[in-house]
């Protein structure tokens, strides 16, 4: 069984209920409106805008991405997956699905955010684009492996953000920095180190996830 086949299965079962997409979109709207209500007519400083964007992204990711493995456990289909595919394949398939979900989610968030917040103006587009891609990949990888751990533990819903936050913290801190850089219009050469750290994070997380997923899955 190929990772793509697993992705297609997830994609079709997602389309049938649209559980993850619906709850994600609603969550984004709720989170954004809470922020808008609390701001009111105040003008907020630029670097705060960058931070708030990542608050919305983090909590939206926490609300939607744990479904990948939890749904298999809930439906009791994880045993069948054990039989038909190798652990690496399963992880690749789930990662692919979460990647698409994260990209979709963050594109929606960014578009809504730039419409709703006047202060959110990107001056260095290339920098923001690279940050966006690298941090989305990191977010998808880390949340997929934590989702796998969570699906085997009790208290699935509450534990997910608790376990994910420390792991995602380096990514979030660097992304907030890079987002505010790209809003200020820092030149690309000045932000190379931060981008490199972000890329390192992605590579490290990907490697460690593939190494450890066997142990979680075969449990």
């Amino acid at each position: 069984m190929k990772p793509y086949a697993l992705f297609k299965k997830d994609y079709h079962s997602e389309l049938r209920t649209r559980y993850a997409i619906n709850s994600l979109v609603m969550f984004i709207i709720v989170a954004l409106s809470v922020i808008l209500f609390s701001i009111g007519n105040e003008k907020i400083p630029q670097n705060l805008t960058a931070g708030l964007l990542w608050v919305v992204i983090f909590f939206s990711a926490m609300s939607g991405l744990s479904r990948a493995f939890v749904s298999e456990e809930e439906r009791g289909t994880s045993l069948i997956l054990h039989l038909i595919a190798a652990p690496t394949t399963i992880f690749s398939g789930k990662l692919l699905f979460n990647l698409i979900l994260v990209f979709l989610m963050n594109i929606i968030i960014t578009i809504l955010y730039s419409v709703l917040f006047e202060e959110f103006i990107i001056r260095n587009f290339l920098l923001f684009f690279l940050t966006f891609i690298l941090s989305n990949i990191g977010l998808a990888i880390a949340s997929t492996i934590i989702a796998a751990i969570i699906s085997k533990a009790g208290a699935k819903g509450t534990l997910y953000p608790v376990l994910s936050f420390p792991i995602l913290l380096p990514l979030i801190l660097i992304s907030v920095m890079l987002t505010s850089y790209s809003m200020v219009g820092t030149s690309f050469a000045d932000a190379v180190i931060e981008l490199a750290v972000l890329a390192c994070y992605d590579v490290i997380m990907l490697t460690i996830s593939y190494m450890l997923f066997d142990f979680i899955w075969k449990d």
Binding site: I145, K152, A153, G154, I167, L212, F215
Partner: peptide
Amino acid sequence: FALRSSIESEDKRATLSAVYSIIAFVT
């Protein structure tokens, strides 16, 4: 510690917390 306290079975707890501690360690 939250993860450890949420799992009852001994082997499962040991495995999952070992995996989480390695993932956390690389950060």
